[in-house]
Design a protein around this nucleic acid. Structure first.
Lengths: 175, 175
DNA sequence: GCCTAATAGTTCACCAGCGAACTATTTGCC
DNA sequence: GGCAAATAGTTCGCTGGTGAACTATTAGGC
C-alpha cells in the first residue's frame, strides 16, 4: 500500500503534542501500543493480499492451518474458536466457506451429537502443501531487518507481552 | 475476553508440526508475525471495549486524536487517510460520525474547493481532555511486565520493523 | 479560453465479524 | 425416568471497512 514512515512520524509528533496539553500521558506505552497495531495491520494487509488470489482471508487460512497442524486433522468449531480467538458465529461462516471449497469436511461427533467435527480433506492438505512455500520468502523479507539476535529478543519480548496482557482484559468488561 | 496462553501454546505446537510436514518453514518469522497479530488484536479489543461506552471505535478515536494533536486542530480527510492508513470511503463515514457528535466540524477549503476541512471543536477538545486520562492506568498495566530497558528495546525493534516492512507491501499488488 | 487528465470526497453494494436470539443435545438433580 | 440448566452450533440483524462508480473541482496542454 503506502509507506508507514509518515504514519510513524506523525505518531511520534502527535504523542508529543498531546503530552503538552494533557499531563501524565504515558508516552512510551502509547507509542508501543500504536506501533504494534500499525505494524500488525500492515503485515496483515500484506498477507491478505497474498491470500486473495485463493479467495481466502487470514481467518479462513488460520482455521485451515489449525486443522492441518492438529493431531489427527480434525477439531470441533468450539476448539478452533478458543485457539483462534474467534467467536462461534464467525467460525460457522469460516467452516461454511472452507467446506464449500472442499478443503474441509463436516460431520457430527459420535459421542456428543451437539458437536460438529471439522476435518481437513486430502485436497485441503494438498492445497496447503502447494500454496504455503511460495509465501516463505516474502515473509522472511519482512523480518530481514533483524539480526538473528534481534529476532530472538523481539520474539521473547513479544511472547512475554502476549502472555501478560490477557488478565487485564478480563477485569473491566463487566461493570 | 479469554486468555491468550492457549493460543500462544497452540501456535508454537502448530508451527512445529507444520515444519515437520513441509520443509523450509521459517519458524521464527511465522511465530513473530502471528504473535504480533495476536497481541495487537488483543490490545485493540481491550481498547475498543473502553471506547464503547463513548459510542466510538478505535478508528474514530484515532481520527479525533489526529485532529486534536494537529498544528491548528484541522486537517483534510485526505491527510488523515494518509496518516491513519485509512481508505477515503471510511474516512467519510468516520467524519460523519464525529460530526454528528459535534466533536468536529466540516467546512470547505477556500483555496481548493474540492477539499473538505475537518476541525476539532471545543467540545471535541473537552471530550478528549476528559476521557483520555482514565485510560492511562490500564494502558500502563499492559506493559507493566516490561522493565524500562525492555520497553525501550521493544520500541526500538518495533519501530525498526515498522519502517522496514513497508516497501515489501508495495512490490506485489499490481500483477 | 477550452478540453482532457488528474484529484478530493462521496455514494453504493458488498464482505467480515459480532452480539442476541434460537435449536438441539447433554448433564445432573430429584 | 423426567425436567431444569448448561453447552455446541446456527441464524439473524447490525456495524466497520473496502473497491468501484460517480460528482465536483482543479491543473495542464494547446
Amino acid at each position: 500500500m503506502s509507506s508507514l514512515k509518515p504514519c510513524v512520524d506523525a505518531l511520534y509528533e502527535g504523542v508529543d503534542r498531546v503530552a503538552q496539553s494533557i499531563p501524565g500521558v504515558p508516552k512510551s506505552e502509547v507509542l508501543l501500543v500504536r506501533l504494534l497495531m500499525l505494524t500488525a495491520g500492515a503485515l496483515l494487509r500484506e498477507f491478505e493480499n497474498k491470500l486473495k488470489p485463493y479467495g481466502m482471508n487470514d481467518s479462513d487460512f488460520r482455521t485451515l492451518m489449525m486443522l492441518y497442524s492438529s493431531e489427527d486433522g480434525s477439531a470441533t468449531p468450539g476448539e478452533l474458536c478458543a485457539l483462534a480467538e474467534q467467536k462461534p458465529t464467525n467460525m460457522t461462516r469460516i467452516a461454511n466457506a472452507l467446506a464449500k471449497k472442499a478443503l474441509i469436511s463436516r460431520s457430527h461427533a459420535t459421542h456428543d451429537r451437539r458437536q460438529v467435527l471439522l476435518r481437513i480433506t486430502p485436497a485441503g492438505r494438498r492445497f496447503v502443501n502447494k500454496m504455503l512455500p511460495p509465501m516463505f520468502p516474502p515473509l522472511m523479507e519482512n523480518f530481514a531487518c533483524f539480526s538473528s539476535t534481534e529476532r530472538k529478543t523481539f520474539e521473547k519480548l513479544l511472547k512475554k507481552l502476549a502472555l501478560h496482557i490477557d488478565p487485564t482484559v478480563d477485569t473491566d468488561d463487566t461493570p
